[in-house]
Design a protein around this nucleic acid. Structure first.
Length: 210
DNA sequence: GGTCGGATCATCT
DNA sequence: GATGATCCGACCG
């Protein structure tokens, strides 16, 4: 695919099945300028929620179109942000054509810039200066680190303050797949993608890898 | 090292 | 009224 010179991922990148976008997003970069503070991070873990036929998808057929999942029906490259467990925000990228409700959950990323802001937002001491997995490994942590809230639900991800830009795609043989985390339906569908061995990949219940 | 429970609330039935 | 695409701190060994 031809990418524009400014490096912003084009709508065509997202106008594909969610599982392809989930795999291909690994290695690309999410940049946030929320509150005027720049943070960028390389995506290392994703999950695909493929549409009405996917029982774990927020737009599964039994649910249909509701106020919460409205953004999933928008054009490819739209943000879908929702609150979970009453506490945390989760950030997704809408895939496929308008009216086709599928998305990719961004579960973890490796900070590249703005570490001080990340540490500040995550309530960690300013000392140190380097990134650790507990800052951005896991969807709730990642959203908090980048300042992503429900205010960005429906946001166009080619525009500031939240943009997906070209990074260095993960080599094909470094990508691993497995069941999605924390879902009760379609629990065995292998729609989770991550970069093998990357320390910023989340490890729910069992500590962090490495 | 591991396992467990509480926090906290929008959304949907 | 129940559920949930989570996180963190407490507790145990």
């Amino acid at each position: 695919m031809k990418l524009p010179r400014d490096g912003v991922l084009p709508p065509e990148f997202f106008d594909r099945p969610a599982q392809h976008v989930a795999r291909d997003l690994l290695g690309h970069v999410l940049r946030s300028d929320v509150d005027g503070r720049t943070v960028s991070a390389r995506i290392v873990e994703t999950e695909a929620y493929t549409g009405p036929q996917d029982p774990a998808c927020h737009a599964a057929a039994r649910i249909g179109r509701t106020r919460r999942n409205e953004a999933m029906f928008g054009p490819p490259g739209t943000a879908y942000v929702y609150r979970i467990y009453g506490l945390h925000w989760c950030f997704n990228v809408v895939t496929g054509a308008s009216g086709d409700p599928a998305a990719v959950l961004i579960r973890a990323a490796e900070p590249l810039a703005g570490i001080d802001t990340v540490r500040d937002r995550r309530g960690m001491a300013a000392a140190g200066g380097w990134a650790v997995p507990a800052l951005t490994a896991g969807p709730g942590r990642l959203a908090a680190a980048l300042g992503i809230t429900g205010a960005l639900d429906g946001h166009n991800l080619r525009r500031t303050p939240l943009v997906l830009v070209e990074g260095s795609p993960a080599p094909e043989d470094s990508v691993r797949t497995g069941p999605r985390i924390g879902v009760s339906r379609a629990a065995d569908w292998p729609l989770r993608y991550w970069i093998d061995g990357n320390p910023f990949v989340s490890r729910p219940r069992g500590g962090l890898r490495r």
